[in-house]
């Protein structure tokens, strides 16, 4: 069945107009990766394969010097923050995962269970009522784990510093690696904090 609109629509050009440069994708012409090569990279075979490849290097420089950078590289490119929000900073936290800022391009994927996370972004005002729940969540996260204090409230209590119900800085409760200033910080600032944390992980020795 054809609609009148489809009938009036001009037919697509069979060839590019004269004078235009034919576009070629970068990968065009490259041999396709055989399926079996992808299969050998599955996790059960990754460590033996890596040991085989890096064997000489490990024998030369020691395991710590070679394996540690590999794990740091993997860890800092797959930071999984806990998906939770305490106050208005959580709105910016959510915006950072939207289409405009797209934090997932840095491998930052929020997870809903603390047992799948290695990064806690404390995004909001921490009250004494929620303090022990925050500590419980932090203790449920597997090692190694990092903490980002996002915004003025989590950093030092913010405008509520002297209030009767507010923890003056989340570092009173758990160790913090990176502080992000702002009230609330823009998503760019949050991404900057994550990149600074990645630099910290790059330098990690043990």
């Amino acid at each position: 069945m054809t609609t009148p609109a489809a009938q009036t629509k001009p037919a697509p050009a069979a060839s590019p107009p004269a004078g235009s440069v034919p576009v070629e994708l970068p990968m065009a012409g490259a041999p396709a990766v055989p399926f079996i090569e992808i299969e050998t990279l599955r996790s059960a075979q990754f460590i033996p394969a890596a040991k085989e490849t890096l064997g000489d290097l490990i024998a030369e420089q020691g395991q710590a010097k070679v394996i540690r950078p590999v794990f740091n590289w993997a860890g800092r490119n797959s930071l999984f923050p806990l998906h939770w929000g305490l106050a208005c900073c959580a709105i910016e936290f959510a915006a950072a995962f939207g289409a405009r800022w797209d934090a997932e391009r840095f491998g930052v994927v929020p997870r809903s269970s603390p047992r799948q996370c290695d990064l806690m972004i404390v995004n909001g005002t921490v009250t004494w009522k929620v303090a022990h729940k925050l500590i419980t969540l932090y203790e449920q996260m597997p090692d190694p784990k990092w903490v980002i204090a996002m915004g003025n409230c989590a950093t030092g209590g913010g405008p509520f510093r002297t209030a009767y119900s507010v923890v003056p800085g989340v570092d009173k409760l758990i160790p913090v690696d990176v502080y992000i200033a702002g009230c609330p910080p823009r998503p760019e600032a949050m991404l900057d904090g994550i990149l600074r944390l990645e630099n910290l992980i790059r330098e990690r020795k043990e």
Binding site: W128, A131, H132, G157, R161, T162, Y164, V167, P168, G169, K172
Partner: peptide
Amino acid sequence: FKLHEPEELEVKSRR
């Protein structure tokens, strides 16, 4: 009730 220094409040508020 006076506004407390954060440290003083912390000691008394901690679980």
